[in-house]
Simulated scan of single mutants.
Amino acid sequence: MTTRNRSTTPTRLTLACLATLALTACTPNSPKAGQPDATAPTTPSTSTSAPPSTPQPSGPPDRPQAAEGLTLSAAEAFIRYYSDLMNYASDTGDSTALLNASEPGCENCKAYADFVKKSSAANGLLTGDFHEHLKEVSELVRGPSGRLGGSATVTVGKYVSRQTPTAPPFTSKPRTYTRELALSPQSGSWVMYEMKQVEQ
């Protein structure tokens, strides 16, 4: 795990999250983004998964113009775009665009990318309402280092996942969680620095 030093301001929860996000996001007990949370209610399933019958996306979503630049409004647009990239990766198993929009040291970004390479809708190991629905972006605060911290409220429906075709399937119940995140500037726009999900 890469250790990162960040400045904190004790009066703002967001800056505290910005300061500790990289450390807390990759602890052994933290759920990995996009993976079924071991602490969340899961139900063993005996049904078999079949590849989806709906057509897969032809390519990853393009970064919208609103997500260009380093303003707070660009940060919010980027966070919504990043959620779209996560959904695309879970559909197809292709995490290239997701990783291109992430810092190389983002541990949970890599963990999510590794998960969808193994289990995605394209290979039939991820079925149901697994898409993220990003409801709200809040508490965007720029730190003295130029990085930005904030959070997003995300809902996910009921879905079934498997690690391999022969592994037991698990059903994850619908849930809402908060994604705490940090962004960093890169080539004049934001990229994901680190993220973690906190069950509500």
Rank of each mutant, 00 (worst) to 15 (best):
M1I: 15
M1A: 11
N5D: 14
T8F: 13
L13C: 13
L13T: 12
L15E: 12
L15D: 06
A16H: 07
A19K: 08
T20V: 12
L23Y: 08
A25T: 05
N29C: 03
A33P: 04
G34K: 06
Q35E: 13
Q35R: 03
A40Q: 07
P41G: 03
P41C: 07
T54Y: 10
Q56S: 13
S58E: 14
P60S: 01
D62E: 05
D62F: 03
P64A: 03
A66E: 12
A66K: 06
A67T: 05
G69T: 08
L70C: 05
T71A: 03
L72N: 15
S73C: 03
S73V: 06
S73N: 05
A74G: 05
A74T: 06
A74N: 03
E76Q: 02
E76R: 00
A77D: 08
A77Q: 07
Y81M: 02
S83N: 11
L85Y: 13
L85F: 09
S90Q: 05
D94R: 05
S95T: 12
S95I: 10
T96A: 13
A97T: 02
L98P: 00
L98S: 00
A101F: 07
Y112N: 12
F115W: 08
F115P: 11
K117G: 13
K118R: 09
A122V: 05
A122M: 03
G124W: 04
G124E: 03
L126S: 00
T127A: 15
T127E: 00
H131W: 00
K135Q: 13
E136I: 09
S138I: 02
E139V: 09
V141E: 07
R142N: 04
G143V: 07
G143C: 06
G143F: 12
P144C: 10
R147M: 13
A152Y: 09
V154M: 15
V154I: 15
V154P: 11
G157T: 04
K158V: 03
V160D: 00
Q163V: 13
Q163K: 15
T164M: 04
T164Q: 00
T166Q: 06
P169E: 00
P169T: 01
S172D: 01
S172E: 01
K173C: 15
Y177S: 08
R179T: 08
S184G: 08
Q186F: 06
Q186C: 12
S187K: 07
S187M: 01
G188Y: 06
E194K: 04
Q197G: 14
V198D: 03
E199D: 12
Q200S: 10
Q200D: 07
